[in-house]
Structures are given as C-alpha cells and as structure tokens.
Amino acid sequence: MGLNHPSDLAAWHRWQQSRHRLRQLRHSVRRPSGAATEKLVLTTYDVEPRLLVALDSSSPTSHASLVEPLTHLGVPLALLTPGPPPALPGRQPLATEEVSSQLPAALRGLRAVVSLGSYLPRGEAADAWAKELRIDSFVVQHGALTPHAPPLPRDARLLTWSDADATFWRSGRADVEHEVVGSQLLWHAAGRPPTDAPDTRLTYLGQMHAAELSRRRLVLAAASFCRQHDATYRPHPSERDKLSRLTHDGYRRLGITVDGSVPLAQLGGPVVSVFSTGVLEAAAQGRDAWVDFPRPPAWLGEFWERYGMHRSGGTPTPPPPRPASEPARRIAALLTEAVS
C-alpha cells in the first residue's frame, strides 16, 4: 500500500479541495475579490545564504522538524515564511521583505533548500527555486503518513522517520532518495517522563477535521467510545469552528466530559485515538496508548501496523524505536554536508 497520488500533486490538490468545499465557500464569501491569499516573506541572516528553509506552518510538528535543527547549524541561512519569521537563538536578520515567485537575487548562492514538501506555497516556491538552481531539495517528515499524504517533489531528498515510511511515501518512485533520521517530536516525548498529574482518566484524542475519514464516522466513533469507556474527549486544537463547538456541546449533553485545557504533553493518563501521532507520543513517554475505530478501512489497519499501534482491548502500544542520535542534530548534519 502507498499514496493515492504518488506523483500527481494537482490531483492531490483536487482531492483536498473536494474535502473542504464548505470551508472554501465560506472563505470566498469573506475574502474581498482580488485579495492576496498567500505571502512569501524572505528573511536573510547572512549576505549570501547557502540554505533556504521554507516554513509553511507554525505548528509544533513543523517547529520540531524544521526550526529545531537550525540550532545545530552554522551555515549561511535564509527563511521563507508567510509572515514574520520565528526567533532563532544566536541569529539576527539582515533583511526581511516580501518577494514574488521569481527567484530572488539574494538566493542565487543557495546550495540546498529544505521544507515539509511542495504542496504548500513556501515549500512550492523553494522547490521551484531549487530546480532552477539545480540544487538539492530536502523534505523532512513531520507527521505519520496515510495514503492521503501529498506526493513528494520530484528528485527530493527525503529525511524520514523510518525505512518503512520512506517506502510508503515514495510509492514505487525511483527519483527520491532518503535518509532515516527519526522523529524529533517522538524524541522529545521519550525524554519526558510521565507527569505526576493526579487525573489518570482515559483520554480520547479528537481528530474531527481529519480529511481521510468522514466527519460523521469520526464524531460517532468518539462519542461511542467515550460513553462506553467513560473517557474524556480532548478536542484537537483545530476544533474551534462552529460545527465542532456544537458537536462538543452534544457530547456534553450525552454526559461526556470535553476538556482541552491540558496540553497533550502534560496528560497524565492513558490515551486512545483513531490515528493521532499523540498515540505514539504517549507510548514514547511510557504511558498506555491505543487506537480504536469501528470497521476500519484497509489503509487504516496498515497504518496501525506500520507504526506499531495496538488496538483498544489489547496490550498497549509499545514505545517506538528511539534513534541513537537526536533527529534535529542528524538533520542539521545532513544539511550542513549538502551546503558545504
């Protein structure tokens, strides 16, 4: 099993858009005609950057995958972001400006770019510039992979969690090279002992906005499990829209506790979810963790198997293997080698 769209990014975008038609309609009504929807903000930290880092997201997984390695890098650097860049310890920007999709003159000396992929605007621009300059385009894996993941850029150098994930993501393509570096997110979890929080109640990690499964099935699965096992429902941080809030109210009327006040890393008890990486984080931390979903499709069963996730009712998910070297340091070493 592999990606639904192994190499056709346009087809992947069409699928994604088909899953978010209502959201797109709402945005098209609110956004003035002709208004800019995306920005490419270039920040240089050296006169002639050799490495460009494309940051399309400020999420914890993006930060762990792309920003943390920069603390171990000493090479001339530039960032491409949708807005003001994140603070980088020990580095001060030389210049910050909005740029077009044309290769900026300041980046003519680049020797490599790195991103989460070319499916979002900053990663797309960085990969296009890499091809124009004929330099390496690195992609860092930042989350667990389903068949609905976007395809990798052509001729990418993939920095992945495992050989199994690399094989899955390439899906038979011969143009993609890979190095196994592990997950910085899980590295942190493994080094963080379980909290002494007194509440050890089972927590269900919500994924109401997961595009891979119908919202109705996800909502019903969470409600059924929480009622059957007296579990607390923890909303995903993205569950802030009106429909999600109405669903949470419905859960409360069913007697389900809905509580998102405690950060995932600070939960003290066992967790269960459909396919959240939070299951792997909890297992890495030494806590009990399971997955659960009624009548799972074939791809979901394969996903659970690839990541060693155990179903509810059986033994807990074992801690994922921890690499000998910290992933951020390994990523930094590979990027340094590429631009030297």
Rank of each mutant, 00 (worst) to 15 (best):
P6G: 01
A11D: 13
R14W: 12
W15L: 14
Q17I: 07
R19G: 03
R21K: 10
R21H: 12
Q24T: 15
R26H: 07
S28K: 14
V29R: 12
R31E: 10
T37C: 02
K39I: 05
L42V: 06
T43M: 05
P49Q: 06
R50A: 07
V53W: 09
L55S: 03
D56V: 05
S59I: 11
S59C: 08
P60S: 08
V67K: 01
V67Y: 03
V67L: 14
E68G: 00
E68P: 15
E68R: 13
P69Q: 02
V75K: 01
L79Q: 14
P84T: 03
R91D: 09
T96H: 00
T96M: 09
E97G: 05
E98H: 07
V99I: 15
L103T: 13
P104I: 09
G109Y: 06
A112P: 10
S115L: 07
L116S: 11
L116M: 11
G117R: 08
G117S: 04
S118M: 09
R122S: 14
E124G: 13
A130H: 00
I135E: 06
V139W: 02
H142C: 10
G143Q: 11
L145F: 04
T146S: 15
P150T: 09
P151C: 07
P151D: 08
L152W: 08
L152V: 02
R154S: 11
D155I: 00
L158T: 02
L158P: 00
L158C: 11
D163W: 01
A166N: 00
T167S: 13
S171V: 02
E177V: 10
E179M: 08
V180P: 07
V180C: 01
V181L: 13
G182M: 01
P193M: 12
P193V: 10
P193Q: 15
P198D: 13
T200A: 11
R201F: 02
L202T: 15
L202R: 14
L202H: 02
Y204R: 06
G206D: 01
M208C: 08
A210Y: 03
L218P: 01
A221T: 08
A221P: 00
D241F: 06
S244R: 04
S244W: 12
S244H: 03
L246V: 15
T247N: 06
T247A: 11
Y251K: 00
L254N: 01
D259V: 07
G260T: 04
P263T: 04
S273L: 08
T277R: 04
A282I: 03
A284W: 02
A284S: 09
A289D: 07
P294V: 02
P296S: 07
A298P: 01
F303G: 00
R306L: 06
H310P: 08
H310V: 04
G313V: 12
P318M: 06
P321E: 06
P321S: 05
A324F: 05
A324W: 07
A332I: 00
A332L: 04
V339N: 01
